[in-house]
């Protein structure tokens, strides 16, 4: 068995999502090669080579991989994929754009958002916004998988894998990235934060959202998240949406403020270790999954909570 893991990075540092996907890869057994595709991304290859359980780092550099298009990433993966029994990536927006292309060209199924490795060909994954868990077995010669990051702990360092340069495929010219507007919050990254403070429509406005949740997050060194309703209303940027179609998080502590707990939101946070909900409606569904529910007006409770934490 040989596993190829596609790395997620920004040409400088390896994304923690890849370290979680590596943990899933290690549960398969066999040799694991990490594929780093980028431009001037040697530091990433070095990062990857230090991770425990890695056999080799395959390192590809080309100018068109600076801001890579999914079409080019997929053709690079395909160029090295032969001989591997498993091709993995984290289920990030990159992984979800590239891996289906890889699977289709190999004429094999893709298995999305794997949360459990039950054997070399058997995996579990959530369906219906996490309201059911499906166990699937693949009969394809190659298993192409995306891994749900929140379901696996990040692998540690402790390795010293060789870094092998690989020739880059040429730019297929189908599409190119012409701009990026990345959100900089100054807060811990949502996907890997230990504590998440999430707000919903109940906050009422962008001003309230920031005035109440920023200091709360500050006290707890937490990442900030939001519901779709809060994002649609412009309280925060889209990449902070948690749920079926947003980020999936499983922090040690999740504080839900002024959000109802729709199925689609629960899908992204119900595996958190401890859930606290602050809501004025005693019947809000979020209170049914909360370990600690506080029924009342968030505009009184949140400032009091910030005071109590200081």
């Amino acid at each position: 068995m040989r596993v190829l893991l596609l790395a997620e990075h920004n040409n400088d540092t390896l994304d923690p999502a890849t370290r979680s996907a590596l943990t899933a890869a290690r549960q398969l057994g066999g040799d694991i090669d990490i594929l780093v595709i980028g431009d001037a991304c040697r530091p990433v290859a070095e990062n990857a080579s230090r991770l425990a359980g890695v056999s080799r780092v395959l390192w590809v550099e080309a100018a068109h991989f600076r801001e890579p298009a999914a079409e080019n990433l997929a053709s690079q993966v395909l160029a090295v994929a032969s001989g591997y029994s498993h091709v993995l990536a984290a289920a990030t927006s990159m992984g979800k754009s590239v891996m289906p292309r890889v699977a289709a060209v190999l004429d094999v199924a893709q298995i999305s958002e794997v949360i459990g490795v039950l054997g070399v060909d058997t995996f579990s994954r959530p369906i219906y916004a996490g309201n059911a868990t499906q166990t699937v077995q693949s009969f394809d010669p190659v298993k192409v998988i995306t891994v749900r990051v929140s379901a696996f702990d990040a692998s540690d360092e402790g390795g010293a894998a060789p870094i092998e340069p690989v020739e880059a495929v040429s730019d297929c010219g189908l599409s190119r990235v012409v701009g990026r507007q990345l959100t900089r919050t100054g807060r811990p990254e949502l996907g890997s934060a230990d504590v998440v403070v999430a707000g919903g429509r109940g906050l009422g406005s962008r001003e309230n959202f920031i005035a109440l949740l920023e200091p709360l997050a500050q006290e707890l060194d937490a990442a900030i998240g939001a519901t779709r309703a809060a994002v649609d209303a412009g309280f925060v940027s889209n990449d902070l949406q948690i749920g079926q179609t947003g980020k999936v998080v499983a922090p040690r502590l999740y504080i839900a403020v002024g959000l109802s707990g729709a199925i689609q939101h629960l899908a992204g946070m119900k595996d958190s270790q401890v859930i606290v909900a602050i809501n004025k409606d005693a019947d809000a569904p979020i209170l049914q999954v909360a370990d600690y529910g506080l029924v009342g007006d968030l505009f009184e409770i949140v400032p009091a909570l910030i005071d109590a934490l200081r």
Partner: peptide, 14 residues
Amino acid sequence: AREVDGGLETVECL
């Protein structure tokens, strides 16, 4: 304009 993990990305496609 694409909604990606870190924010928004703009791509031009043929």
